[in-house]
């Protein structure tokens, strides 16, 4: 079992990697003379990515009052830090968007991921957090570990999904039983490999953890957002069950029961538009 898990991790490089343009854009940002213009120049080289960025910037995710029509304008409005996140988000989605899966459609997978991002962001805003877009990215990437499982172990995952459906068995447990590794571990490793900021690795790795611990806020908020979107049944990354709520993570988030209603409403009203901004051509 251990060997199987190791083999799977060895094969992570068979997956498509993030486009070079993401790393170039990131570099353009950290250079001392780095500016929005230089980043915009990098991004403009990729027409489909920049078109996608504009669509996302104009979507309900940001709720901008006036429409932005150029990349420079978009970057100026949303800021450099956020520009980095949005480039990352669109890159990840476009790399995997057109790869066929099995019982779960890629579209359904991204619907769930995007909805979780939207819910995370809504929670963070509710809690008065600043820079709430990092919560969107955290939610978007939380289940990314499922993609390597579907693509590298299609038969085993087919089996797991079948057992999940027929016996109501918990999919996370089935992953551990059948593959010896779960999507949370794989997700954290994959994001590390991509050199994505550590906080997102923790979210991917620990969003199902239940025990008392020192979670970062992104993790706990994503934990709850994941439960909300699974109950709302917006898309699915495979499971049909609502994940178990961790007392510790709930406490850590600082949410109150009364906060849930507005979060749910905002998630329902926003997600559809964000999904089409990311997925439709």
């Amino acid at each position: 079992m251990k060997a199987r898990a190791d083999r799977l991790l060895d094969r992570l490089n068979e997956l498509p990697s993030l486009p070079a343009i993401y790393y170039q854009a990131r570099e353009a940002l950290v250079r001392p003379e780095g500016s929005l213009e230089s980043m915009a120049r990098v991004l403009e080289a990729d027409l489909s990515l920049s078109a996608r960025l504009l669509r996302v910037a104009n979507s309900a995710l940001y709720g901008l009052v006036s429409k932005v029509d150029s990349l420079t304008h978009a970057l100026a409005v949303i800021g450099t830090e956020e520009a980095h996140r949005i480039v990352l988000a669109t890159s990840v989605v476009s790399v995997f968007r057109d790869i066929p899966l099995g019982a779960v459609s890629m579209r359904s997978f991204w619907e769930h991921s995007i909805a979780t991002g939207v819910a995370s962001r809504a929670i963070a805003r509710r809690l008065g957090q600043t820079e709430v877009e990092r919560f969107y990215l955290a939610g978007l990437l939380h289940d990314i570990g499922r993609l390597p499982l579907y693509l590298l172990e299609p038969d085993a995952m087919g089996q797991a999904l079948q057992a999940h459906r027929e016996h109501r068995a918990d999919l996370l447990t089935l992953e551990a039983q059948i593959l010896g590794i779960t999507h949370t571990d794989v997700g954290a490793l994959l994001l590390e490999k991509w050199q994505i900021p550590r906080v997102y690795c923790e979210v991917a790795g620990r969003h199902h953890d239940l025990a008392e611990d020192d979670y970062c806020l992104e993790t706990s908020i994503t934990h709850i957002a994941d439960i909300i979107t699974n109950s709302l049944r917006i898309g699915s990354s495979g499971t049909r069950a609502v994940p178990v709520l961790s007392d510790a993570q709930w406490q850590r988030s600082g949410l109150e029961i009364e906060d849930l209603r507005p979060v749910v409403d905002l998630t329902l009203s926003t997600t559809k538009d964000v999904v089409s901004a990311f997925l439709e051509s």
């Binding site: 099995g102 019982a103 779960v104 459609s105 359904s108 619907e111 087919g158 999904l161 079948q162 459906r165 709302l232 049944r233 917006i234 898309g235 699915s236 049909r240 329902l268 559809k272």
Partner: peptide
């Protein structure tokens, strides 16, 4: 066929 059925069911779970 099984995957097809699974995906179809998922579509019809969506609140939208």
């Amino acid at each position: 066929l099984r995957s097809f059925a699974h995906r179809l069911e998922s579509v019809f779970r969506s609140p939208y």
